[in-house]
């Protein structure tokens, strides 16, 4: 119950962010999609033992957060939600992979710890980049981009309707469960039969609403497809955006920048 409320709140917050006029929101959503995909692929293409080498890529989410004027609290909140599964699996690494890899201040760190930190870093960077970039683009713009990228109409329509009615059904679900809890006494958890009844009611309401929605669509001439009538203009700024960021990603992937920087700083020879 609490999870649903939080989830809806987060979604609303992201939608608000997407609606503002920032340098990021003016970019074509196709460019944003492309760059985010490139980012994630580049990030994940590193060898598992790379930690420092990943850091130059961190420039991407940091700049996004700044350009999108995303409040720090939102970012922290996002990171806390992120990928518990990956972290759990990653935690197994130090146990399994115990061959020493790093020598730091006289302490030998096993490969497992290095790869665990690497996983941590990957999670943080990929999650923040994805949500910052695409979450702040807003669903309508995203679907317009997908439609222009030849993604089947059914899928775009599905995403739009899902997003539209998430809040409606989410609110209904909250009201149902709240009303239940007020009469349910001191039960700590929801018994299965009651869950089935609540879920079933929600399903029936979804069905009825779908019927009325269909009628409303028919009444205004619906013939099977929603018009995704949003003109997208690819601008020079978008080409620059894609070009600059992909160059940075390639650079960071090809050259171990922190290592080079560190060598400069500590005077250690190449």
């Amino acid at each position: 119950m609490g999870r649903l409320a939080t989830a809806l709140q987060d979604l609303r917050a992201l939608d608000t962010l997407a609606a503002r006029d920032t340098p990021l929101s003016r970019r074509d959503p196709r460019a944003k999609l492309l760059v985010t995909l490139l980012f994630v692929i580049t990030l994940m293409s590193f060898d598992r033992y790379r930690v420092a080498a990943l850091l130059p890529l961190a420039l991407f989410p940091v700049v996004l957060a700044a350009q999108g004027a995303v409040p720090a609290r939102t970012i922290a909140h996002l990171l806390m939600l992120a990928a518990p599964f990956a972290l759990l699996v990653g935690l197994a690494n130090p146990w399994i992979d115990s061959a020493p890899q790093l020598l730091l201040a006289g302490i030998e760190l096993s490969g497992g710890w290095v790869s665990f930190v690497s996983i941590l870093l990957r999670v943080t960077l990929s999650v923040s980049a994805t949500v910052l970039m695409l979450g702040c683009t807003g669903m309508p713009a995203l679907c317009a981009a997908l439609a222009r990228l030849r993604v089947p109409q059914v899928l775009c329509t599905q995403l739009l309707l899902l997003h539209r009615y998430l809040f409606v059904l989410g609110d209904e679900a909250q009201r149902l469960t709240t009303a239940y809890r007020l009469r349910a006494g001191r039960r700590p958890r929801l018994p299965l039969q009651h869950f089935a009844a609540l879920g079933g009611q929600l399903l029936l309401r979804a069905h009825e609403r779908a019927t009325r929605l269909h009628q409303a669509m028919l009444a205004r001439g619906f013939t099977g497809q929603l018009p995704l009538a949003r003109p997208l203009q690819w601008q020079q700024g978008d080409t620059l955006f894609v070009g600059l960021w992909s160059s940075w990603f390639l650079l960071a992937r090809g050259i171990d920048l922190p290592q080079a920087l560190g060598r400069l700083a500590t005077g250690a020879g190449p």
Partner: peptide, 27 residues
């Protein structure tokens, strides 16, 4: 023109402008 009892059933497009334009576009 039919105005439904529950406006949520009727406003299904992502923005107000998209929704009001739905009918004319279908025409």
């Amino acid at each position: 023109g039919y105005v439904f009892q529950d406006a949520d059933d009727q406003l299904f497009m992502p923005t107000v402008r998209d929704d009001v334009a739905f009918g004319p576009l279908n025409q």
